[in-house]
């Protein structure tokens, strides 16, 4: 039984929404980080579904690009989190309120 395009799109929309809610609700940077990854991977699923339905390779190539970029983002993000952890010993984002005005 073939799975229809819409099923894929609905699943990826749900995954994306879970990611967005995670970013908005959770306070731990690592969890926020995971939620962002969930968003990006939901988009990858969308790309794959469309590439399959359209019979075009562009979507596949795009997935490789976004996977690579996501990996690079993880490196930079974790480095910044570690740098903050060294100076503060806690990483709750509600405590990050030095900059305001």
């Amino acid at each position: 039984m073939a799975v229809s395009l819409n099923s894929y799109l609905i699943v990826s929309a749900i995954l994306f929404s879970i990611g967005v809610i995670g970013v908005l609700v959770r306070r731990n940077p690592l969890v926020i980080f995971m939620s962002i990854e969930l968003m990006l991977n939901a988009v990858n699923l969308t790309f794959m579904a469309f590439a399959n339905a359209l019979g075009s390779v562009d979507g596949w190539v795009f997935v490789f690009i976004s996977l690579t970029v996501a990996a690079a983002e993880v490196v930079v993000g974790l480095a910044i989190i570690v740098a903050i952890f060294r100076t503060r010993k806690e990483i709750d984002i509600d405590e990050m309120n030095t900059l305001k005005g």
Binding site: G19, L40, V43, T46, L54, D58, G59, F62, S66
Partner: peptide, 13 residues
């Protein structure tokens, strides 16, 4: 970036 990428995916679709 997540929103931007999702927008690109839907435009592509």
């Amino acid at each position: 970036s997540g929103f931007l990428l999702y927008g690109m995916a839907l435009t592509y679709g």
